[in-house]
Amino acid sequence: MPATCSLIITTYNWPEALNKSLESCLLQTITPIEVIIADDGSKEETRELIKSYQAKSLPFNLIHCWQEDIGFRAAQSRNNAINAASTDYIICIDGDIILHPNFIEDHILHAKKNQVLAGKRVRLSQRFSQRVISSNEQVSPVSALFYSERGRKNAIRSTLLSRYRSKVSRDADSVFSCNFSFWRQDAINVNGFNCDFIGWGAEDKEFCIRLINNGAVKKQLQHSAVCYHLYHPELSRQMADINQKIYDDAILKQLTHCKNGLTTMGTAY
């Protein structure tokens, strides 16, 4: 079990959602040593939001990793953050995710060597998401149960249920980078996320399957590491077929390494 961790939050031009995500980081029972914003080229409003948090007395170090906006490059933005991380263990979420207060604690408690963790999410309704963003209201398990659009059962946090329903496997099914954690050295060993992924696609699953091919197992968390996904319209899936082939090749060829990853990074600051 790691003593502490780094939390990576990916974001792109939605500071209102990122603000709610950062607010939830401040309510954690166990805080990460650092929160790293993996920014895929957001404009000044996001930078100003992050600066306003950095000016506060925070229980963690807040780091902003920004890269030029030349298209959807979530894989590279996460690699920027992995390179910037200073701890042994990394948790990934997206900038439209609000954390249950025990989210970080749950990931740390379940973490083991040679294992990655994949959690679930509650998809909040459009109306409730707008209400949360425009107010000081916090999402709770009760409100998530009432105002969820999908994944209502994922709002239930239970140590007992988690013990019996969380399963270990060697596949990347149900892996989403909005609730995922791994050891930093394991990520380095497989050369991080594959930057051949451009646009929406399975870059999180492909990363996970290379970790598995390299000796890890996946633990699918149930009723633990609860988080709430703010509503947004579906992203363009123009590159879905091309990206799916990259993932399929990693499975078919049992790849443990990608060429275009952590060691071939572009410029970020």
Rank of each mutant, 00 (worst) to 15 (best):
D173H: 14
D94W: 03
I63A: 02
Q28A: 06
I198C: 05
K113N: 14
E105I: 03
I9A: 01
I93W: 03
K153A: 11
P32M: 02
I93S: 03
E206R: 10
H107E: 03
H223R: 10
N61W: 07
V122L: 04
L255I: 13
N79H: 05
I97N: 01
Q220A: 14
E34Y: 01
A75K: 02
T31N: 06
D249W: 13
R157H: 07
R157P: 03
F72G: 04
K259C: 12
T159L: 13
Q115K: 13
P101R: 10
Q138R: 15
N194K: 09
D241H: 15
I9W: 05
N179G: 13
E16N: 13
T263F: 09
H107V: 02
S166T: 12
L252R: 15
H223Q: 07
F197H: 06
V142W: 14
A3G: 08
Q115W: 10
Q185W: 07
N189A: 13
N61V: 11
Q185C: 13
E105A: 15
Y147N: 11
D94G: 14
L7G: 01
L252F: 14
I209E: 00
A268E: 05
D173N: 15
E45Y: 08
S174L: 15
P59L: 12
Y12T: 08
I98L: 06
S24P: 05
N19V: 12
I212A: 11
R121D: 07
I97F: 00
I93L: 11
R237V: 12
L160K: 14
I36K: 00
C208A: 15
F60C: 05
L22D: 02
I246F: 10
H110M: 10
L124C: 03
N19R: 10
E34H: 01
A155H: 05
R210P: 01
G266F: 02
T11G: 00
A240S: 11
N179Y: 06
D94K: 12
N79G: 05
T263W: 09
C92R: 02
E45F: 07
H64S: 01
L252I: 15
A81D: 06
I30W: 06
D249A: 15
V217Y: 12
Q138C: 14
N191M: 06
L62W: 01
T11D: 09
V226Q: 04
L109K: 14
V139G: 04
Q67D: 02
F128T: 03
